[in-house]
């Protein structure tokens, strides 16, 4: 059994962890930088475009190829599998191997969990956060010169430094479209700071309104969080958002709609207007802290 793992440097340790859990004879890793991971061979290649990743990865020999479930690698993984005409599974949260490959993954936006089986060779993208990272030194390191003729032309790349990693936050105050305007984020920030919490949001707040950066959006296409307290303010509780916080220890929701779906998935469901509750809550916490 030969596993090839390819990833951006940050996800590589978790991918190698996933590969190790299947006890293969050989693990080869491919990344753009040197990373301390315990693999048989680490190949460093200056790969930027998905076209080039696809060319290079399709040339490798493997029984199983593991990639992270990022937007770029989901494209690359699907392409490598299609080019070779082999099996492809995405977003695996658990992997098993007994002749055939088994993977569990979310379906219906997280409403369900399914278990799939397929034959090797296969390409699989994995939900990196479901696996433990490993560290160590590669037995050998190789640099790969890349010559590739992409079908598309790169015009510009805009990279944004993430300001926070919400997956590690202990307390989270999260807002949704119940908030009427960007300026009202101030009171949410104030509440968060009093609680020592991070501010998070639903996808419309970051993607459509751009009131907060993308890495603060929780859910299926955003971050998965597991804080002690998740305080959801003005959030309806659509399944794509709920999957992001359902491992929270305690969920408190504030919503004016007594039938909002979030009532079903919270421990404490407060039926109230956030514009009344939040200022009063700030005042009350201040008062208690002061005394």
């Amino acid at each position: 059994m030969r596993i090839v793992v390819a990833s951006d440097p940050s996800n590589l340790p978790k991918l190698v962890g996933a590969a190790k859990s299947l006890s293969p004879e050989v693990i080869e890793a491919i990344s753009t930088e040197r990373v301390s991971v315990p693999v048989d061979k680490l190949v460093i290649a200056d790969l930027r475009l998905n076209d080039c990743w696809t060319d290079v990865l399709s040339e490798r020999e493997f029984d199983l190829m593991l990639l992270p479930s990022t937007r770029d690698f989901k494209e690359v993984g699907a392409r490598v599998a299609a080019r070779k005409g082999i099996s492809y599974l995405s977003d695996a949260q658990e992997l098993g191997l007994s002749g055939r490959l088994a993977a569990t993954r979310m379906v219906f936006s997280g409403r369900g969990v399914e278990k799939l089986e397929t034959s090797l060779p296969a390409v699989v993208t994995i939900d990196a956060d479901s696996f433990e990272p490993v560290s160590g030194e590669p037995s050998s390191v190789d640099e790969l010169g890349v010559s590739c003729s992409p079908k598309v032309n790169l015009i510009e790349r805009k990279e944004r430094e993430a300001e926070v990693d919400l997956s590690k936050a202990e307390i989270i105050v999260s807002v949704g479209r119940g908030l009427k305007k960007k300026e009202d984020l101030e009171m949410i920030r104030e509440l968060a700071s009093l609680l020592g919490a991070e501010v998070a949001c639903t996808r419309p707040i970051s993607a459509d309104f751009k009131w907060l950066p993308e890495e603060r959006h929780v859910g299926m296409t955003g971050v998965r969080v597991k804080p002690k307290i998740y305080l959801a303010i003005g959030i309806s509780g659509q399944i794509q958002h709920v999957v992001g916080f359902r491992d929270a220890e305690t969920v408190i929701a504030v919503n004016t709609d007594p039938d909002a779906p979030i009532s079903e998935v919270s421990d404490y469901f407060v039926v109230a207007d956030l514009y009344e509750v939040v200022p009063k809550l700030i005042e009350e916490i201040r008062r208690r802290k002061g005394s």
């Binding site: 369900g112 969990v113 399914e114 278990k115 998935v265 404490y268």
Partner: peptide, 29 residues
């Protein structure tokens, strides 16, 4: 094409306390 078999599908369940808090602003706060 290579086949993919669906072995199992189930609902994700996570029980919550679901206590409803209603009343005046002072009470809920």
């Amino acid at each position: 094409f290579p086949t993919i078999d669906l072995v199992e599908i189930r609902a994700y369940v996570r029980e919550r306390r679901r206590e409803r808090i209603e009343g005046s602003v002072e009470e809920v706060v």
